[in-house]
């Protein structure tokens, strides 16, 4: 088997300065919006999982922090009887990547919006989207695309059709590749094959404006997804007048990359010319109940490592000659 050297990035002068500057600007932005910083330990006791960087601390197998959201959730459950409503974080996470050229150590800044009252969810989702809209400006990024999606647009039809878990995962993988023709092959013989494929064709449209929601309204699961469509439509109406210059807001209903984790609206930030998303997040109401607390939560994470790569590859996308 060939051996790949994992990518542990050393940041030299300009990149190191850029990272520190961006972290500072984003944490300022979050603090001004009421998000207080928490710093979970770099070492996590939950070492199970394929993509973790693990080592023995004496007799105990532990892992380097692989995900801020989970590290924060475990910390909040351990230390708080009621959740603080707004928390933020900055630092590195360590994950074995799917591709050898991706870094193991990744720098992130992010925030989580927590609540006990389910009635606060819709406003919390809008608050986060609005906050993410301010991120490109804080980083000096000229232009960007904010994509709104919803994990439920696929999860609910799959559940309604009683698809076995493995087949549902295959269908989600096909949608993530925008390949409804592959989903049709995977669903061969299933009574809902045509219906689900038609739905996936609608979801696979390129990201666009509210008219995409109209397309879903004419599809086979129009009634089942009425609430999600209406939530996305309301979000577009509320957020569009607030868009900063250079930022475009679109609906991307094929955003299912975190389908096992997200339970509701999702957010992605892209820039023209970027090969990876620059920020991602959404509503994940399943995590805290799994940890024994009836709290709902949503958040987003700005991928500073992806932004550092973008600043090297496309400096023209940033204000001034030195991003």
């Amino acid at each position: 088997m060939p051996t790949h050297t994992p990518h542990y990035p050393d940041l030299l002068f300009a990149a190191a300065a850029r990272l520190r500057r961006w972290e500072g600007r984003l944490m300022d932005l979050l603090q001004r919006s009421g998000y207080a910083e928490l710093r979970p330990s770099l070492v996590m006791r939950e070492a199970e999982g394929e993509n973790r960087v693990r080592f023995f601390d004496g007799d105990h197998l532990v892992a380097l922090r692989w995900d801020f959201t989970e590290a924060l959730a475990r910390m909040l459950v351990r230390r708080f009887p009621e959740p603080p409503p707004r928390v933020s974080y900055a630092g590195a996470v360590f994950r074995r990547p799917a591709s050898s050229w991706e870094p193991v150590e990744r720098f992130e800044v992010g925030c989580e919006r927590l609540s006990v009252d389910p009635g606060e969810r819709a406003e919390a989702d809008l608050e986060l989207a609005q906050l993410l809209m301010a991120v490109p400006g804080a980083l000096g990024l000229q232009g960007g695309l904010l994509h709104l999606g919803s994990a439920a647009l696929l999860a609910k039809p799959l559940e309604a059709e009683n698809l076995p878990e493995t087949l549902a995962a295959r269908v989600a993988a096909c949608l993530s590749r925008r390949a409804p023709h592959r989903a049709f092959e995977a669903l061969e013989g299933h009574p809902a094959a045509r219906r689900l494929t038609e739905h996936l064709e609608r979801l696979s449209q390129p990201p666009d404006g509210p008219e995409l929601l109209d397309t879903l309204g004419e599809g086979p699961y129009a009634d089942l997804l009425a609430e999600e469509r209406s939530h996305l439509a309301r979000a577009l109406v509320r957020l569009t007048p607030l868009l900063p210059e250079g930022l475009t807001l679109q609906v991307d209903p094929a955003d299912v990359s975190g389908l096992g984790f997200y339970t509701g609206p999702t957010l992605r930030l892209w820039a023209p010319g970027a090969q990876r998303e620059l920020a991602a997040g959404g509503r994940y109401d399943g995590l805290f109940p799994q940890l024994g607390r009836p709290w709902s939560a949503a958040g987003f994470c700005v991928r500073l490592s992806a932004l550092l790569d973008l600043a090297e590859a496309r400096p023209d996308l940033f204000e001034g000659s030195e991003p």
Binding site: P207, D252, A274
Partner: peptide
């Protein structure tokens, strides 16, 4: 199959 770069498709959807 016609394949597309994820980044190009999502960041410049109309052009693509």
């Amino acid at each position: 199959r016609l394949i597309a770069s994820r980044g190009s498709f999502l960041s410049e959807p109309r052009r693509m």
